[in-house]
């Protein structure tokens, strides 16, 4: 509005208002008709003309008329809910591993998979036909695709580390008897030495005694650790289980993406093209139902 230049203020201000109102009415009427007929593609065009022109009609430089578009800002949640029906149906076929939960009108959480344990993976931005992935979760998936090239899994290193710690602890438990025998032998050696120590103790005697005391301390430390070892082992096993679970979730996710898209790169490409691909699938508005059922066959 500001861009428009009108020299003759007196006449033009009212005609300007009339034109603007007419444009707003036209916009609302078109949107109303598109919604009424469930012509979702047209609705998307009306909601973001600039993007539509660029990605569907390949016309750049088509500015959005914010003055008319802002009219429906307060209907964003309802429009999102309305448009989600066809979009989620489409995504059900193209991204069969995503599940959605509408936690409030027009707002959808994405869940990756319907397997035993699954991750919340971000949100679905219906109005912009876009996944808004949880960056932390997404990074894990990306990382595990990278690791898969080296035949490794996301938590493999940590699992290995904890497992070898468990092996060490189990060793402490298993060698309790040897430790006890050693302790008795060290103690009796110490007694012998103590018997020989007096006011004029030789340096060698002192050294040996210190060694024996240290040895005894080490054995006692190990004994102390062995006493709580089985509890620690059990706790570690639980940690390993939950790490393995995360590995499993990631492997299910990788498998799903490979089954559907062939590779992670193709998955990312599909995400980038989602808007264009989805609107193209809507076939101008009238025949999209025919398109969907053709896909089903």
């Amino acid at each position: 509005m500001i861009d428009e230049k009108h020299e003759n203020k007196a006449v033009d201000i009212s005609s300007l208002i009339e034109r603007q109102i007419a444009a707003k009415i036209k916009y609302l009427q078109e949107l109303n008709e598109a919604v009424d007929a469930h012509h979702d593609r047209e609705v998307y065009q009306l909601l973001d003309n600039q993007r539509y022109a660029k990605e569907i009609e390949h016309r750049e430089q088509q500015p959005n008329n914010q003055g008319v578009m802002s009219l429906v800002n307060d209907l964003a949640d309802q429009l999102s809910n309305y448009l989600s029906v066809k979009l989620i149906k489409y995504l059900g076929k193209t991204y069969p591993f995503f599940y959605y939960e509408e936690y409030q009108t027009g707002h959808y959480r994405i869940y990756f998979g319907n397997w035993w344990d699954r991750r919340q993976f971000g949100e679905l931005d219906v109005l912009n036909v876009r996944f808004s992935f949880d960056q932390t979760e997404y990074a894990k998936l990306q990382k595990s695709f990278e690791l898969a090239k080296d035949n490794k899994r996301y938590n493999s290193d940590r699992i290995e580390k904890i497992s070898s710690e468990n092996d060490r602890l189990q060793g402490l438990i298993d060698h309790q008897r040897e430790r006890e025998e050693e302790r008795q032998s060290v103690e009796s050696q110490l007694e012998e030495i103590n018997a020989r120590s007096g006011l004029f103790e030789s340096n060698k005697n002192k050294e040996t005694r210190q060694e024996l005391v240290d040895q005894l301390q080490k054995l006692e430390d190990e004994e102390q650790e062995a006493r709580t070892a089985s509890k620690t082992i059990h706790e570690n096993e639980q940690v390993v289980l939950s790490l393995s679970k995360e590995n499993t979730i990631l492997s299910y996710e990788q498998k799903s993406i490979i089954d559907t898209f062939g590779s992670f790169e193709d998955f990312e490409l599909a995400n980038r093209n989602l808007y264009a691909d989805y609107l193209a699938s809507l076939e101008g508005g009238n025949s999209e139902e025919g398109k969907v059922s053709a896909d089903e066959q």
Partner: peptide, 10 residues
């Protein structure tokens, strides 16, 4: 216990 089966399916 079910987690264990889940992990094994991987």
């Amino acid at each position: 216990v079910i987690d264990q089966l889940f992990v094994a399916t991987a």
